[in-house]
Computed example of a mutant assay.
Amino acid sequence: MRTLGLITGAAAAALVAAGAITYAVAGDEGSDGAGRTPTADSADAGFARDMAVHHQQAVEMSYIVRDRTKDEEVRRLAYDIAQTQANQRGMLLGWLDLWELPKVSADPPMTWMGMGDTASGKDGALMPGMATNAEMKRLGSLSGKEAEVFYLQLMTDHHKGGVHMAQACVSACEVGVEKRLARGMVEGQESEIDLMAGMLEERGARARS
């Protein structure tokens, strides 16, 4: 069985890095806009809001699959993803609190990326890469290998959407600490995409796209 030493180490590193980031980001010295608080319609605020929602679904999916399989490899990966993304989500929401900005917006998701009304994913998914309500329900109905494969496929799609969003923040966000977090998301999730491709192959399956 494939070991998860690499991914476990990556997840642990991400948690350590996340824990080291201070909430004092409004005056972050590494920011192109040091000393300025982001506005509600900024890329910084938009990324924080949208990625918090995106992460929440990944956490939910990961806890669902942990109850649907006894495979330790998948359970360990799901735990790593859930812990890392819950930690990052807390930081994103904490920054919005610090900036005294709303956690929800009347604008469609990903408007800050210039996507707006075109951002919705397939079959009514809120954002590209996110699972639909029907897919979440199906995941909760499966067990064993079927649950493992479907989770890995869903999470691969989810990570691809997350990487796209994080890359946009790296390009457009101005708060340095948030840009660094986004870079870490890109690196960590791309690594997990590669890992999940191997796990799917071991189970006679592959990513959906």
Score class of each variant (00 low, 15 high):
Ala43Glu: 14
Ala45Trp: 00
Gly46Phe: 13
Gly46Tyr: 11
Gly46Leu: 14
Phe47Gln: 06
Ala48Pro: 05
Ala48Glu: 14
Arg49Ile: 05
Arg49Tyr: 08
Asp50Gln: 11
Ala52His: 10
Ala52Gln: 02
His54Met: 11
His54Arg: 11
Gln56Lys: 12
Gln57Lys: 03
Ala58Asp: 07
Val59Tyr: 05
Val59Cys: 03
Glu60Lys: 14
Met61Lys: 07
Tyr63Phe: 03
Tyr63Ile: 06
Ile64Gly: 00
Val65Ala: 07
Val65Gln: 02
Asp67Glu: 09
Arg68Gln: 09
Asp71Leu: 04
Glu72His: 12
Glu72Asp: 08
Val74Met: 01
Val74Tyr: 01
Arg75Trp: 00
Arg76Asp: 09
Arg76Gly: 04
Leu77Tyr: 12
Ala78Tyr: 15
Ala78Asp: 03
Ala78Gln: 03
Tyr79Ala: 14
Tyr79Trp: 11
Ile81Cys: 14
Ala82Pro: 12
Gln85Glu: 10
Gln85Ile: 02
Asn87Ser: 15
Arg89Thr: 15
Arg89Asp: 12
Gly90Lys: 10
Gly90Tyr: 15
Met91Glu: 07
Met91Arg: 15
Leu92Asn: 03
Leu93Pro: 06
Asp97Val: 05
Trp99Lys: 03
Trp99Ala: 12
Glu100His: 11
Glu100Gln: 15
Leu101Gly: 06
Pro102Lys: 09
Val104Lys: 08
Asp107Glu: 13
Pro109Trp: 08
Pro109Leu: 08
Met110Gly: 03
Thr111Trp: 12
Trp112Asn: 10
Met113Trp: 05
Gly114Leu: 10
Gly114Val: 00
Gly114Trp: 10
Met115Leu: 04
Gly116Leu: 06
Gly116Pro: 06
Gly116Asp: 03
Asp117Val: 10
Asp117Lys: 09
Ala119Leu: 07
Ala119Asn: 05
Gly121Asp: 05
Lys122Glu: 07
Asp123Trp: 12
Asp123Ser: 11
Gly124Met: 01
Ala125Ser: 12
Leu126Tyr: 13
Met127Gln: 06
Pro128Cys: 11
Gly129Gln: 03
Gly129Pro: 07
Gly129His: 09
Gly129Trp: 05
Thr132His: 13
Asn133Leu: 11
Glu135Gln: 15
Arg138Gln: 13
Arg138Ile: 03
Arg138Tyr: 00
Leu139Arg: 04
Ser141Pro: 00
Leu142Gly: 03
Ser143Asn: 11
Ser143Phe: 07
Ser143Thr: 10
Lys145His: 10
Lys145Pro: 06
Glu146Asp: 15
Ala147Lys: 03
Glu148Asp: 12
Val149Tyr: 00
Val149Glu: 10
Phe150Asn: 07
Tyr151Leu: 04
Tyr151Val: 06
Leu152Tyr: 06
Gln153Leu: 04
Leu154Ile: 10
Met155Leu: 14
Thr156Glu: 05
Thr156Trp: 01
Thr156Ala: 09
Asp157Leu: 07
His158Glu: 14
Lys160Asp: 08
Lys160Gln: 04
Gly162Gln: 08
Met165Lys: 06
Val170Ile: 13
Gly176Met: 01
Gly176Pro: 09
Gly176Ile: 10
Arg180Phe: 04
Arg180Trp: 13
Ala182Ser: 04
